[in-house]
Design a binder for these strands. Structure first.
Lengths: 351, 351
DNA sequence: CTGTTAGCGCATTCAC
DNA sequence: GTGAATGCGCTAACAG
């Protein structure tokens, strides 16, 4: 229509230069009038040869199965990327070790990765390294956790502050007359947990003053010491009738609550849908779980990265909050069915 | 590798006939060994010329905004199908009129549609017609509602029975000592509402006998008569301290609850996230909303149909339950942000 | 600066 | 029965 060839149109529309400004203008105008939209799948087919590689840096931990669920989502996402010729490389950082994670990052760069998805550890060196990478043009997507004051292209995870607010609202719903609340939180080294606590505290203060937040106790993520800490704190606060506890790392904490005789005595809300929490929910020992859909997080992270890598437009930094769900005992069959289905949907293993 | 051309491989792998059985076997074996998987996007590009058309048959109603949200999801899904050369045609049935819907169906067939997504009305003629269509090879996807004893390829909507169970669980959470419950339900002409009631009743009987289900009242979906019915029933049951009411069609019902002085007096759970219910939640007049994610339903329906149409394998009938969410007052900012974002994400209007 | 060509993986059509 | 050729829409490389 513009009397030029496809190649010229391509260059004009993508500002690749080497094209007469007047012609380019004419082409853009016509494209606009026609409502032209590039065909994403054709572009994908064509770009297939680029062989993009995405590196995912996760944590490995024997007591936290959260990332097992994240992995399922990653596989689902990867499954859709294979057709685009993209590749995924997964690296594990052991024990939330910053040095180890730093090494993972450097390795990824050395291997000329095209983008990094990472569950970042709060550490100034990690932060500095990621800032460098992001500004060097390699996109960085934060998964599940985020670091304060660090550059990133997208954050995929739950809205922690909101999840704290929701716990407050749910506790109020369960005991409108208020109560004595004890909050156990996983290591605050994870910035998200800090935000969650903030949301919880502010909401209680503002909207539910009848709830008395007796103390919030930071746990260690070590099963045994968490057990000991929890027992000790419950002894110190025998009047406790409301408890909020972690789910993913919550085994030690929950066992202590049970052994201290607080099952049935306190209303308990747990974060995250670990096996042990599901069991406790089934037996009506805990009231509800606030789940953050780890599988969807993994899936969304991969898809987000893919869209950053293929997207022509400069995508501005964009938080991609995955909605949490409040789960009751009635949800258990649904949860279990989902587990099966999600596992079934996966076609092949990762490379 | 098999010493044959691409064409032969294609015929062999898709059992299109006209290929030497021995050669076909050899090809299949090699394909299996290689873990060959057809590239979905290349197939999409190639199939583009087929110009598939999907017909969506929705309801139009001035008092029910549920389908406005469904439409957003449909647009999102359509947006992803454009690249595959697929087209969407939307027909509206007015006032849940079976004759009108029947006409819509016939029209779609006359226009040689490739697949029908429908919010089916419970009517034997509709049922019969859809049975014919489905067995004639045109896939039928049920959206939001389903009909008992009718063939379909997929149902996309919430698990109604579960959503009834969840309401029971939530009510128990809010008042463990039990209460006097009144349940208002939209027209039972919608089979899903019947299932929801079933889930609610059974769960109360089995697990929460302290909740006394005084009566369940079927509404008409007409705002004025719903108002009158609700007022009358609340007068009959002045001791009521627990109410479950519809959200999408709940305006008349909710206003009556308010005018009868039950705000603050009864714990109220609403289904579906209509404007009026969000407002009531914000003002703390209702306790919670059980939402069925209409946008995700619309999106999933379109994607499901697309996958049926493009999928080579015979997909067995498959329910695609969209998970519900329990929403509290704290969720309101999230809900409103989602609204905006979802609207923003849509690139162009429907044709 | 611009046009041409080839190729991404698959399906279809038409010769042989 | 089989192979070769063509096209889906886009991009990259190269030739002019």
């Amino acid at each position: 229509m513009a009397g030029v060839s496809a190649g010229t149109v391509d260059r004009a529309l993508h500002n690749r230069g080497r094209v007469n400004p007047e012609v380019a203008e004419r082409i853009r105008k016509i494209a606009k009038e026609l409502g032209y939209r590039p065909n994403a799948i054709a572009k994908g087919l064509s770009k297939r040869k680029d062989n993009m590689k995405i590196t995912i840096i996760l944590h490995i931990s024997k007591t936290n199965f959260f990332f097992d669920d994240v992995m399922i989502g990653i596989k689902q996402g990867y499954d859709e990327l294979i057709d685009y010729g993209m590749t995924i490389d997964i690296k594990y950082t052991s024990d939330f070790n910053a040095d180890d994670q730093l090494r993972n990052i450097d390795e990824a760069i050395a291997e000329r990765t095209n983008g990094i998805i990472i569950v970042p550890i709060c550490d100034s060196r990690i932060s500095a390294r990621l800032n460098g990478i992001s500004s060097a043009g390699i996109p960085v997507v934060f998964l599940t956790n985020l670091i304060d004051g660090t550059e990133y292209d997208s954050f995929v995870g739950c809205d922690y502050e909101l999840s704290g607010q929701i716990a407050a609202g749910l506790m109020n719903l369960a005991s409108p007359a208020g109560g004595r609340l004890l909050v156990f939180i996983p290591s605050l080294a994870m910035y998200g947990h800090r935000l969650r606590l903030k949301g919880l505290r502010e909401t209680i203060e503002r909207d539910y003053p009848a709830i008395r937040l007796q103390e919030y106790i930071e746990l260690t993520n070590d099963e045994i010491s968490d057990y000991q800490i929890t027992r000790k704190k419950l002894e110190e606060h025998p009047q406790t009738d409301q408890i909020i506890c972690p789910g993913a790392f919550g085994r030690g904490c929950l066992t202590a609550i049970k052994d201290s005789g607080f099952f049935g005595k306190a209303k308990i809300i747990a974060y995250d849908c670990s096996r042990i929490m599901i069991q406790a929910l089934r037996e009506r020992n805990i009231m509800a779980i606030i789940a953050q859909q780890p599988t969807l997080q993994g899936y969304t992270a991969v898809k987000t990265m893919a869209s950053i890598l293929t997207g022509s437009e400069e995508t501005p930094r964009h938080d991609n909050f995955i909605k949490t769900r409040i789960l009751l005992a009635e949800h258990i069959p649904e949860i279990e069915k989902s587990y099966e289905e999600e596992r079934r949907k996966i076609r092949g293993p990762l490379p």
